[in-house]
């Protein structure tokens, strides 16, 4: 039956090609949400995407917009240069946890603190995926990786970093939210958050930031379904979902899930 209207359509700015991601990896969902927002806000013609290093590196193959590849962790600095050179562009980065919260921590925080009118899409899957599953700044305590084979130990390696809370605390951010894509409900909420993160800089309010909790079944050594269940069971209790800052709201509400 092909006579009905499609109940689900892919955004035109998303390249209709197979992805390089592993089975069950939620980068595919995250980049689709970005593409949907680019289409809905009619941004594809003036968007400039800043790629990063990690599994996210090939974002430029999937989003049909002008793109530049940044060195590891430097996407927010590159985005700053692009935006200052071309203020009319809709500039966004797409970064993983190692890139954004470890090697790029300084660039990320200062970009947000300056209130650069850019959007940061942060895909947090608690591990360095592309390099083979090493410990990330967001690796959960106890989580085994190839560089913390006994499990992350808070005494030695510290606690996983909560980036959205940090970004929300900085004066230049206009919107900061943490979302997940582990359920239909969460995917719908995530889409709204991504959209707001694009709208904040476009409306000249400041930086827009979304942290998307995502799976890495391969490096978590789990099936995709087990990995997806881990999001709600282990990650969300430590990394609570919610809008941590939205300057368009009268008050900043901490903690609750993004409204449907």
């Amino acid at each position: 039956m092909k006579n009905g209207k499609e109940a689900f359509t892919l955004p035109g700015v998303l390249a209709d090609i197979p992805t390089h991601y592993c089975p069950g990896c939620q980068h595919g969902v995250a980049q689709r949400l970005v593409a949907e927002c680019l289409d809905e806000l009619a941004l594809s013609e003036k968007a400039i995407c800043i790629g990063s290093i990690g599994c996210s590196v090939f974002i430029y193959n999937y989003l049909l917009v002008d793109s530049v590849e940044a060195p590891h962790g430097r996407a927010p600095a590159v985005a700053t240069g692009v935006k200052r050179a071309r203020p009319e562009a809709a500039v966004f980065t797409y970064q993983g946890d190692g890139d954004l919260a470890s090697i790029g921590m300084a660039e990320t925080m200062h970009c947000a603190n300056r209130g650069e009118r850019v959007t940061i899409i942060f895909v947090n899957n608690t591990v360095y995926g592309m390099t083979g599953g090493q410990m990330a700044p967001t690796t959960m305590v106890g989580q085994r990786t190839t560089t913390c084979p006994g499990g992350r130990c808070a005494d030695n390696e510290g606690q996983p970093i909560k980036m959205t809370e940090i970004i929300a605390s900085l004066g230049g951010s206009a919107y900061a939210a943490r979302v997940a894509v582990d359920s239909v409900k969460h995917v719908r909420a995530a889409k709204k958050a991504v959209r707001k993160a694009f709208e904040a800089p476009l409306n000249n309010l400041g930086l827009g930031f979304v942290e998307i909790l995502a799976t890495c079944p391969t490096n978590w050594k789990m099936t995709p379904v087990q990995a997806n269940e881990r999001i709600a069971a282990e990650l969300i209790p430590y990394f609570p979902l919610g809008t941590f800052k939205d300057v368009t709201e009268l008050e900043t509400i901490e903690g609750p899930e993004v409204a449907e």
């Binding site: 400039i48 800043i50 530049v68 940044a70 060195p71 430097r74 600095a77 590159v78 985005a79 700053t80 240069g81 692009v82 935006k83 200052r84 050179a85 071309r86 562009a89 300084a106 660039e107 200062h110």
Partner: peptide, 14 residues
């Protein structure tokens, strides 16, 4: 300086 040079990269790309 790391960030400054990468900002330069971004502006140069434009």
């Amino acid at each position: 300086e790391v960030a400054a040079a990468n900002m330069l990269l971004g502006a140069a790309a434009c």
